[in-house]
C-alpha cells in the first residue's frame, strides 16, 4: 500500500522545483473508482494525487506525447523537466526510451512507486457489471477488498490483477529520483503461462485462434497510441507512400498490422499490457508481446528496459547468434 501523504509530499516537492514544468500522476476519475491521469502544475494541484490498485495507466507516454507548438519570434523553448509517477513497468518504459535516445535522463524526474500489481479493469468490469457503483478498492496482503453496494467483498489478488502483474519480475522501478515507500523484495519468475497455452496448439489451431481475434480488429490503432514505446513521429501504417498496410479493414491487413506492431516492439516491449487494456475489441495483444519477450530471452538473453546503457536488441548482434534455420 502506498502512503498517500508521502506521495503528495514528493509530488509537491518536485513540482515546486524551478526546473520542473509539471508532474504527471493519477487522480480520482469521474465514476466508480475509476482513475485518470492528472497533471499538477503547482503544489495545490498535487493535493489530488492518489495511488490505488486501479492506477493502471502507463504515464511514460506523456513526455513523448507533449506537443510542442511553433515558437514565436522571441519565445524560447521550455526545456524544463517533466515529473512522472512511475511503477516498475512504467520506469522500465522510460529506461527503454532513454536507451533509444528518445528522451534524456535529465528530461524527467521520476517518482518511483514499488508496485504490487494493478487491477485489470476488464476483469473487474466482467465481475461487477455495475462497476460504477464500486466506491473503493483496497489492497490487503493477498487480496483486494472491494466496497460494492455498501458491502465489502474480498477477492484473491490473482483473479483481478493483469496477467502480466501476477508474475511481474520487476515490481521496483529500475530508475527513480524519489522512491515512495520501500523496495519490494520479489522472487517472482515469469511463467509465460498464456503463451505456453497457445504454443502447445497445433499450427491450424493457432491460426484459428488468431484469425478469430484479428478478424475482430477495427484498426483504431489504440494499441499503438497507448504504448509508451510507440513514439515514432510518423507510424508506418500512416504512411501513404509506400503504403505498408492498406487502410481497408480485413483479415489480411489486420494481421499485417498486428505482425508489424509486434515486430516493432520486439526487444523493446516492457510488458505493461497497456495495449491490451485499451483495445476496444479485447484482442490479447500481450500474448504476442510476451511470446517475443520469451523467445528473445531464450535466444539472445536480452531483457529490455533494465539498463540505460544497453544497446537495442535489433541494433546489435553477436557473430555467433543462433542460425539453425539458415540454409
Amino acid at each position: 500500500m502506498v502512503n498517500q501523504e508521502q506521495l503528495v509530499d514528493a509530488v509537491k516537492k518536485t513540482v515546486s522545483r524551478e526546473d520542473v514544468k509539471y508532474v504527471v500522476g493519477y487522480e480520482k476519475g469521474t465514476y466508480g473508482c475509476e482513475v485518470t491521469p492528472s497533471f499538477a502544475h503547482s503544489s495545490e494541484e498535487a493535493e489530488k494525487f492518489i495511488f490505488t490498485p486501479l492506477c493502471v495507466h502507463n504515464l511514460a507516454i506523456y513526455p513523448k506525447l507533449e506537443e510542442k507548438l511553433p515558437l514565436g519570434r522571441d519565445e524560447k523553448e521550455d526545456t524544463r523537466k517533466i515529473g512522472l509517477v512511475v511503477k516498475g513497468c512504467d520506469s522500465r518504459a522510460v529506461v527503454q526510451i532513454i536507451q533509444e535516445k528518445g528522451l534524456k535522463r535529465e528530461d524527467v524526474v521520476l517518482i518511483g512507486i514499488p508496485c504490487t500489481g494493478v487491477v485489470n479493469p476488464k476483469k473487474l468490469k466482467s465481475r461487477y457489471p455495475n462497476y460504477a457503483e464500486i466506491v473503493e478498492i483496497e489492497e490487503k496482503d493477498s487480496s483486494f477488498s472491494i466496497k460494492f453496494n455498501e458491502e465489502n467483498h474480498t477477492i484473491p489478488k490473482e483473479e483481478l490483477l493483469f496477467d502480466a502483474c501476477i508474475n511481474c519480475e520487476y515490481p521496483n522501478p529500475p530508475i527513480y529520483d524519489i522512491l515512495i515507500g520501500e523496495e519490494i523484495k520479489s522472487t517472482n519468475k515469469e511463467t509465460y503461462e498464456k503463451v505456453k497455452v497457445v504454443e502447445s496448439k497445433s499450427q491450424k489451431e493457432k491460426w484459428a485462434y488468431w484469425e478469430e481475434h484479428f478478424q475482430r480488429c477495427i484498426r483504431c490503432y489504440a494499441c499503438r497510441d497507448a504504448c509508451p514505446l510507440c513514439y515514432c513521429k510518423e507510424c508506418m501504417v500512416d504512411q501513404l507512400d509506400p503504403r505498408w498496410v492498406r487502410r481497408s479493414v480485413n483479415l489480411s491487413e489486420n494481421t499485417a498490422w498486428n505482425i508489424m506492431r509486434a515486430l516493432h516492439l520486439a526487444g523493446r516491449c516492457v510488458g505493461c499490457s497497456e495495449c491490451e487494456r485499451v483495445c476496444p475489441m479485447d484482442i490479447p495483444l500481450t500474448e504476442l508481446n510476451k511470446k517475443l519477450e520469451k523467445n528473445i530471452m531464450e535466444i539472445y538473453d536480452y531483457i529490455p528496459g533494465i539498463s540505460e546503457e544497453a544497446k537495442p536488441l535489433l541494433g546489435t548482434f553477436k557473430p555467433d547468434d543462433p542460425e539453425e534455420f539458415i540454409l
Partner: peptide
Amino acid sequence: YFTRRRITILKNLLEFLGIEP
C-alpha cells in the same frame, strides 16, 4: 547479422500465429 536477428524473430512470430514459418 542484423537481418539474421530480425528474421529469427519474424519466424518465431509467424510460427506463433499459425503461419508456417
